[in-house]
């Protein structure tokens, strides 16, 4: 060793040491830069939370807990309660998930078990491409095509059908506006369908072929394999997909704003105009005058943020669990 070092003239050795130092310095700088960027992502989420709390504070301190339990939304008297938008958000999202998940699972079964192999990739890619279509497209379609269709054809039929039936009567009551809770929920369902489908398909594909083959081997039908092998094996992943869809539906703005009707009241009828948190913010924020009005809208945003954060965190946790299992 020593012989080699002695063979290198001191001048070159010095240059070498300087180069190594320079490299180390640049490396440390780059390391710090990338690390700072990663931390910035955390700061972003933290900043969103903090700024919403600060912005919402006037409303939260003025109304306290009654903000989430009262229904009145009156810019003139400056009395604000978030119950109606919260109700609208939860009802539209819940219906959307109830409609989209069975269809999504159906499409996933079709794609993984039934579809001829050459068609699988194109259909799978088509589904993923549709997930990228901006929500305003669904909104404009809902307003000009879907809502009039419901108003003219479907809603009068359903209202007549259930007239006199106890619970259903009030659920499907009122003049057929076309726009309203159910219309928004259905459009949300179409919107989250690509998400639920592609996640369900992905988790279905994590089922080891051996498990399915042994079930087929003892004579199970395709449905029995799906019902007793695939679905139990991927239960957590499907739940994660459902929650992810729910998170999307809760926070979705444009698709809903077009067709919800923006009415601050809770009506038992699914055909009645209503509002959601995001639609209220989108419709009223730029017109809000007065600090309390703006703060109340930001408080709505805060509620939405917390709600979606919890649901998305749960969804990610569930999907992470299934990822770990396939990784192990």
């Amino acid at each position: 060793m020593n012989a080699i070092y002695e063979a290198i003239p001191a001048r070159i050795a010095g240059r070498r040491a300087a180069a190594v130092r320079r490299f180390a310095l640049a490396d440390a700088a780059f390391h710090a830069l990338t690390r700072a960027s990663a931390i910035l992502v955390l700061v972003m989420l933290g900043g969103v939370g903090i700024s919403l709390v600060v912005g919402a504070w006037p409303a939260l301190s003025a109304f306290g807990f009654s903000f989430v339990t009262t229904q009145s939304w009156n810019p003139v008297t400056e009395k604000f309660g978030a119950l109606a938008p919260i109700y609208g958000t939860i009802v539209t999202s819940a219906i959307a998930v109830l409609v989209a998940v069975p269809i999504g699972i159906g499409i996933a079964i079709f794609l993984t078990e039934l579809c001829p192999r050459p068609l699988r990739r194109p259909i799978g890619i088509a589904v993923e491409l549709l997930a990228g279509i901006p929500s305003i497209i669904y909104g404009i379609w809902g307003l000009f095509v879907f809502a009039p269709f419901l108003q003219i054809h479907l809603q009068p039929l359903v209202i007549d059908l259930f007239r006199g039936v106890p619970v259903l009567e009030s659920l499907f009551a009122g003049p057929p506006y076309g726009i309203g809770l159910l219309t928004s929920a259905l459009i949300l369902a179409i919107m989250i369908l690509p998400f639920t489908t592609s996640i369900t398909r992905d988790v279905f594909e994590t089922v080891p072929a051996v498990l399915k083959e042994s079930a087929y081997g003892i004579g199970c039908t395709t449905w029995e394999v799906t019902r007793h092998i695939v679905i139990p094996y991927t239960r957590v992943g499907i739940m994660g997909g459902v929650m992810l869809g729910l998170g999307r539906a809760l926070g979705e703005t444009m698709a809903v704003t077009f067709v919800i009707g923006n009415a601050h009241r809770i009506s038992p009828s699914l055909f009645a105009p209503a509002t959601t948190i995001s639609a209220t913010i989108a419709n009223e924020f730029t017109e809000a005058d007065g600090e309390l009005y703006t703060a109340s809208l930001i408080a709505l945003g805060l509620i939405l943020f917390v709600l979606t954060f919890l649901i998305l965190a749960a969804a990610r946790y569930m999907l992470l669990r299934i990822e770990r299992r396939t990784g192990a």
Partner: peptide, 27 residues
């Protein structure tokens, strides 16, 4: 740190964009 950022990033990925709008309005 990477684990935490990965988790938070996945949440940001599907966070409601209108909330981001409110944040930038405040900021």
């Amino acid at each position: 740190l990477s684990m935490v950022v990965r988790f938070i990033n996945d949440i940001l990925l599907s966070a409601p964009s209108i909330v981001i709008g409110l944040f930038v309005y405040e900021l």
